[in-house]
């Protein structure tokens, strides 16, 4: 059956060009890794000591001082949830007009589209901790700064997704309303809103979930919430309390995630 065939045929997995590209990419990855390892300032003694130090810390954290939870940690936790929720509401409220301006099927002015997109990108590029630093400088330390930090970080996230949802809305119902002479507000409320509504609630809930996580750290820069209590406990080396606070954060974050997943599943 194979009498007429050449004795050996070559088989290689990749063509020459593909192999060259693969070697190049591997080389680039390894080179950047080598660069990072060689130039990063890591003190060897710290590195050698690390496992022991971590074990020591974990031993100090055990058992968690659960009695410490009520009232001080509890109050801070409630404050954190308020920051997250109020920040989300404020962020969503600010995001709606910007999203409308950014959606090309609603706002036909290219310049306004660009301005809105710029606002959304700037909001997203600055992390909530940096927003918190800025608002601490503006409002002074406290939960007000945290709330605004959360809100301003949320604008970009909510605005971007909302604008995309609006752009995906079918033009038919809006045109029908326009043909019947409905004013702009009416067209939005009866034409666009019903189509965007499920996405809107989904986005808002999703962001709230993220905000619960993020608001837990704002206190580290003085913007209120449970982070303040955590920072204090760490600075005073009260490790059993630190463990309690971490457990509380973990529990709230997990519950928030489960809650949001459940509600979203019902919405969609």
């Amino acid at each position: 059956m194979s009498a007429t065939l050449p004795l050996h045929r070559e088989w290689v997995r990749h063509s020459f060009g593909e192999r060259l590209l693969r070697y190049f990419l591997w080389l680039a990855a390894i080179a950047s890794l080598v660069w990072a390892v060689r130039s990063i300032e890591i003190i060897p003694e710290f590195l050698a000591d690390a496992p022991e130090q971590m074990a020591d810390l974990l031993i100090r954290m055990w058992p968690p001082d659960l009695g410490h939870y009520y009232p001080s940690v509890h109050a801070a936790m409630i404050e954190t949830l308020h920051i997250a929720s109020l920040g989300t509401v404020l962020g969503v409220a600010l995001a709606i007009p910007i999203a409308l301006l950014a959606a090309r099927n609603i706002c036909r002015n290219v310049l306004l589209n660009a301005v809105a997109q710029f606002l959304l990108v700037s909001s997203r590029s600055v992390n909530s901790l940096v927003w918190a630093l800025i608002f601490v400088a503006v409002f002074g330390p406290g939960p007000a700064a945290g709330t605004f930090a959360i809100a301003f970080r949320s604008i970009g996230f909510v605005g971007k997704l909302l604008a995309e949802a609006i752009e995906e809305a079918a033009p038919g119902p809006v045109e029908a309303l326009e043909a019947s002479g409905a004013p702009w507000g009416h067209r939005m409320l009866k034409g666009i809103w019903p189509q965007v509504q499920p996405a809107f609630w989904g986005i808002a809930l999703f962001r709230w979930d993220i905000n619960v996580r993020e608001s837990a750290v704002l206190g580290l820069v003085g913007a209120g919430g449970i982070g303040v209590v955590l920072d204090d406990a760490i600075n005073f080396f009260q490790w059993e309390r630190v463990a309690t606070i971490l457990l509380a954060i973990l529990a709230v974050v997990v519950v928030a995630e489960i809650l949001v997943t459940r509600i979203r599943a019902k919405l969609i």
């Binding site: 059956m1 194979s2 065939l5 004795l7 050996h8 045929r9 088989w11 290689v12």
Partner: peptide
């Protein structure tokens, strides 16, 4: 590494022909 013995590769080609 896809470094199969040449015998295997020859047989695989023969089977693909078949």
């Amino acid at each position: 590494l896809r470094k199969y013995p040449q015998d295997d590769i020859d047989r695989a080609f023969a089977l693909l022909d078949a």
